[in-house]
Amino acid sequence: MDSDVDTEALTARLKGFEGRTAATGGTGKDPVNLPMIRHWCEAMGDTHPAYTGPDAIAPPTMLQVWTMGGLSGHPARAAAYDELLGLLDAAGFTSVVATDCEQEYPRPLRPGEEVTFDTVVESVSDRKTTRLGTGHFVTTRTELRVGAELVGTHRFRILKYAPARRPSAREPDRPRRPRPVVNRDNAGFWEGVRQGRLLIQRCTACTRPRHPWLPGCNACGGQDWDTVEAVGTGHVHSYVVMHHPRFPAFDPPYAVALIDLAEGVRMLGNVVGVPYDKVRVGLPVRVEFQVCDEELTLPVWRAGEKELTLPDRRAGEEAAG
């Protein structure tokens, strides 16, 4: 913005959208159903028995699934929300990133139930400066119902921002890779990666391994856990080749795969060592730790080389070090 007066005037206009409708009278495109529950549980590796059988319930974290509009969108979306986003675009905040969401589950959903929803703009922040750039956080609140009964609340927050300008230099720096979200639940995993170790959670009650890291066991509900170091070998379970969009820190096309680890969990990561068009389901891979910059190390999956056991890998590291 050109001046403090303009900034204040824009913020006042943005605040005027708080409490306005973003979507009204929406209806889920499908009732709660067992096939979608099964697909979700398979993708998440969640084998809890509550989600199968004649008395199955939907996993609570599927809440947003029942309101998604798909490629065609939802007719329930209100003009006020598009007006809000248009106002931010016109002010120069043309980039957008999802920052976080919060959900509440008054009761579980069951197959056959029809979900309806209404969404309001809960808040628009004052102008904020972040590492990405300067902009405004927009939070919407969606209330989901079965009949008149409230069955879930979903808050979703985005940042509409103007990208920060990089300082000029003789040779422009390569853009940094996006940072992973590190929180109290997964900090141990990322510390292990920094040390060149692939750590997997293991429930101390039922000994089931799990990934991604969670505060409790999705098999038995146990709250206590320890870790095991993965050997680091596996094979490609499924994959996609990314062509678009072209983010500055990436060099498409490249392959991103879901890897079946020898320990019985699955993990996402880039496949390296072979051309992207040679990646196939079942391709053997082993972990490699890619140092992106002084702050970020990522696990990637190298194909086309002999798989190493953990003792082999340790011996190689010692010889190299």
Score class of each variant (00 low, 15 high):
Val241Gln: 02
Met242Glu: 13
His243Glu: 02
His243Val: 02
Pro245Tyr: 06
Arg246Gln: 14
Phe247Tyr: 14
Phe247Gly: 07
Pro248Gln: 07
Pro248Asp: 14
Pro248Arg: 05
Pro248Tyr: 00
Ala249Thr: 14
Ala249His: 15
Phe250Leu: 12
Asp251Val: 11
Pro252Gln: 05
Pro252Thr: 07
Pro252Lys: 03
Pro253Arg: 01
Pro253Asp: 00
Tyr254Arg: 04
Tyr254His: 08
Val256Lys: 01
Val256His: 06
Ala257Phe: 01
Ala257Pro: 04
Ile259Val: 11
Ile259Arg: 00
Asp260Arg: 04
Glu263Lys: 03
Glu263Ala: 01
Gly264Phe: 04
Val265Gln: 11
Val265Ser: 15
Val265Leu: 12
Arg266Asn: 03
Met267Leu: 15
Met267Val: 14
Leu268Ile: 15
Leu268Ser: 15
Gly269Glu: 09
Gly269Ser: 12
Asn270Ser: 15
Val271Arg: 01
Val272Ala: 06
Val272Tyr: 07
Val272Leu: 06
Gly273Trp: 08
Gly273Ser: 01
Val274Ser: 07
Val274Cys: 11
Val274Thr: 11
Pro275Glu: 08
Tyr276Ser: 10
Asp277His: 04
Asp277Ala: 01
Asp277Thr: 00
Asp277Leu: 00
Lys278Arg: 12
Lys278Ile: 09
Lys278Pro: 00
Arg280Ile: 01
Arg280Ser: 13
Arg280Asp: 08
Val281Gln: 11
Leu283Asn: 04
Pro284Asn: 03
Pro284Thr: 07
Val285Tyr: 08
Val285Met: 08
Val287Thr: 13
Val287Glu: 11
Val287Arg: 04
Glu288Ile: 13
Glu288Lys: 12
Gln290Ser: 13
Val291Asp: 12
Cys292Phe: 13
Asp293Glu: 06
Asp293Lys: 04
